[in-house]
Computed example of a mutant assay.
Amino acid sequence: MSEESPHFKVLRKKLRKILIAYEKLYWSDVNAVSDDQMEESDKAEQIAEEERAFLEKRKSIIRNKVKALDLTQKNWDIFLAIRVKRICLSS
């Protein structure tokens, strides 16, 4: 996503700084890392990988569907504008 939007690029840099600070605080001393920390880390890594795979699969499915329907960005813009207007009018 960061390649697609400068906003996400900035957020990604901030998140990276936070992660580095966290790792320095809790993971810098290898001898102080507990088995519970390792287990929690392994679980978090597995969840992150599953989420990444899910998002990649979803993007692929959407792209294939868009391609099959021969939709363009202009079609999407019109469709989304109509939906937003309907939602606003019904509120």
Rank of each mutant, 00 (worst) to 15 (best):
R83T: 01
S90M: 01
M38V: 13
N64W: 06
I78Q: 07
W76E: 12
I82N: 03
K74P: 05
K85Y: 11
M38P: 01
Y26R: 00
W76D: 13
L71N: 08
S60G: 08
M1G: 12
S60L: 13
S5Q: 13
F8E: 05
Q73V: 15
D36H: 04
L80G: 02
K59N: 11
S28G: 03
T72Y: 02
A21V: 14
E3T: 00
A81M: 11
S28H: 06
S5C: 04
K67N: 11
L69H: 02
K74H: 15
R16D: 14
M38Q: 09
R83C: 10
K59D: 15
L55I: 08
I82R: 05
I18A: 08
K85I: 09
M38W: 06
K43F: 13
E56N: 12
K9W: 00
E3R: 05
L55Q: 09
A53P: 08
V10D: 03
V84K: 02
E39S: 08
L55T: 05
F8Q: 02
F54E: 09
L15H: 04
E49K: 06
R12C: 07
D29W: 00
Y26S: 01
D29N: 03
E39N: 11
L69A: 07
A53R: 13
I47Y: 04
Y22N: 03
R86V: 06
N64Q: 11
Y26I: 07
R52D: 14
S60F: 14
Y26A: 02
E49T: 07
L89E: 03
I82V: 12
K9S: 10
K74G: 08
E56M: 14
A44W: 09
K65T: 15
I78P: 03
K14T: 15
K24G: 07
L15E: 02
